[in-house]
Design a binder for these strands. Structure first.
Lengths: 350, 350
DNA sequence: TTTTGCACTCTCGCCATGAGAGTGCTAAAT
DNA sequence: ATTTAGCACTCTCATGGCGAGAGTGCAAAA
């Protein structure tokens, strides 16, 4: 009669054994054998008994052995079960918390803050840190400035409520004088300050229609310029990765092929972005283990993410990428607290 | 009697042989033996003769053999001699030139343009592209804007003649009203527009002294704010690297240790920056081969650089990093022409 | 149910071996 | 005086055998 095949009905003893095995493997990356486990577990069992239990765990799909006479290693499913049901996250030390706090002091502009966050994450975990940048769209406009360049090019500067600054160069139909530009910007600030770009665009369309009927509107040129200034979205980076090189020290990723694929996918952004967006609307920390998510570049990797929010609105996602064999009990609270602190840092930045 | 020990008095035949050897090695990375060389060179010589010649070349220090029974490989000195005296750079194809032209169309802001340049370099050479960013200092101020934030923080926006935008947040002694800020910015633009930051700072110091004697100056607050706004230099990236992952395909760098060191030095910037600055005041393309430059992370690497300038002023340096064994005859003209085109693109951007 | 004993399997490091590639030297050929 | 042919020598690298070590699974005993 084979042992129970349901993960959730495993006897206490098997669970403890499994937990110890996973922790052991995370610690030093070697497959764990029955002998070692018998020695290191406080359960007083012989290697043989432990072998039986491990065989059961392998049947259920929590373990696997790389080859006949190596010890056992957790499967992706095993890690999943481990982090979901067995893991106790550890308390961060006072020093660590202070470190995070210090790094996230909200003194400069958002972009720089997010980069610092990413660096800090990678530095503190010795893995790769990743911070998704907030979509600009959601922020309220605060200020609009135009600077006339040569010919009919105009430099547009938009300042948002979160102190983010965007600038774009637009080509206007005709040359505008500085005076006209000043007038236009005054009008636009008056009319649209406090609204986010999406709203602004909508209202602009209405305004345009209105204009067609009432040609005398003195603000024609303002609307004209604004039409371009607010529509053209500058190409922005979607996220920043820091500490990629940390991943090069990790034994299981230590082959150039693999690393290249991973780094390439950081550069192409596409896959990683998908992954991050998935967790944008989860609450709290989320963990993607190995190819679970379907991205084969992330073979043997785990991604620990958390959305960060300010004033109740989700702004983006941050997290850490490392080997499946990472110290979840440390990484999870770090990501968690960083997300929260980043949120409030951004808050006080407004 | 040993053969001539002076590189520059080598007989024609040895030179041709050496050139063919280097080209051969650059092509497929394998040490080249006398047999191969006898076959591939149009000189009609037996392997034995070629062995003699190679022995001479080895004595002079242009060649070395990895071990007794491998073929020969160029030394750093060998590469140096090759690129300086033997190399004929190839003409770029029409397509390549057009490609470069297209990528450098100066439509957007400088920062983005430079990043595109770096990407283009890496893509077209399949190596790592690198572009040093111009020091801001040299550009003339065009526009100054202040946006009042909460408390006593003020967002400063500086627009320069090259359309570059800088923004910084400063903390003022007291809260300024939007009106005051407007007035201050008007005054500052009037007084300092057209001057570069260094000059502006100098004049500000004088202004301050003057102020102490004549307290009635209505522009006290403007000067006060400006003092901070123009002094605090925001931390900027010094250069951008693109296509790092291209280097991971290269056989001689294909060990993780090495790559990690190299990538780390990209991140720390220090060494690379030194190197780039060295070539800032050379005219035209410069080539650093291997550890020649003294940076041991660049073991087995060469760096091909060229300064780029606009209106006769050197703005920065760009180039390519790859293995010593790179196709110099292609890379050199690419770097050369890119630097020139970037220069004129930046020119037309003003 | 647990443990002991044992045969079995697989990896890994080590060594010997042999093929292949290329060299340097000497003596012969041009 | 050069160039070439011949040959012994050296070094790498891939291969295969071998034994130690680690760990397993199973059957029989506790």
């Amino acid at each position: 009669m084979p042992a129970n095949t349901d993960i959730y009905n495993l006897p206490e003893r098997s669970l403890r054994l499994f937990k110890i095995l996973v922790e052991h493997f995370i610690q030093d990356g070697q497959p764990v054998g029955s002998r070692t486990l018998a020695r290191d577990s406080d359960l007083d069992l012989s290697p043989a008994t432990i072998r039986n239990i491990m065989a059961d765990l392998e049947d259920i799909g929590l373990l696997q052995s790389p080859h006949t006479s190596a010890g056992r290693v957790p499967t992706a499913k095993g890690y999943r079960f481990f982090v979901d049901s067995l893991l106790r996250v550890s308390e961060l030390t006072h020093n660590e918390i202070r470190r995070i706090e210090e790094e996230l002091s909200a003194s400069e502009d958002t972009q720089a803050l997010l980069m610092r966050t990413s660096n800090m994450l990678s530095d503190i975990t010795k893995l790769a840190g990743i911070v998704m940048l907030p979509k600009q769209e959601q922020h309220a406009l605060r200020q609009v400035e135009f600077v006339s360049l040569s010919d009919n090019r105009v430099l547009v500067i938009l300042v948002f409520n979160n102190n983010e600054i965007q600038n774009r160069i637009i080509h206007t139909a005709r040359r505008f004088s500085p005076g006209e530009l000043q007038q236009a910007s005054n009008y636009l600030v008056e009319t649209y300050a406090g609204k986010d770009l999406i709203t602004v665009r909508k209202e602009l369309v209405r305004e345009l229609e209105h204009m067609k009927q009432n040609v005398t509107n003195i603000m024609t040129s303002a609307i004209e310029i604004a039409q371009q200034a607010f529509t053209k979205e500058p190409i922005r980076d979607d996220f920043v990765v820091a500490g990629q090189t940390n991943l090069m020290d990790i034994a299981e990723l230590c082959d150039v092929e693999r690393l290249k694929k991973l780094f390439d996918s950081f550069n192409q952004k596409r896959d990683i972005l998908h992954l991050l967006e998935q967790s944008a609307h989860a609450k709290g920390v989320q963990i993607f283990i190995g190819e679970e998510a379907g991205y084969d570049v992330l073979d043997n990797c785990s991604v620990v993410t958390s959305p960060y929010e300010s004033e109740g609105q989700i702004l983006g996602v941050l997290g850490v990428i490392g080997p499946t064999r990472m110290h979840y009990e440390r990484v999870i609270p770090i990501v968690d607290i960083t997300a929260k602190m980043l949120g409030s840092a951004l808050n006080s930045n407004n």
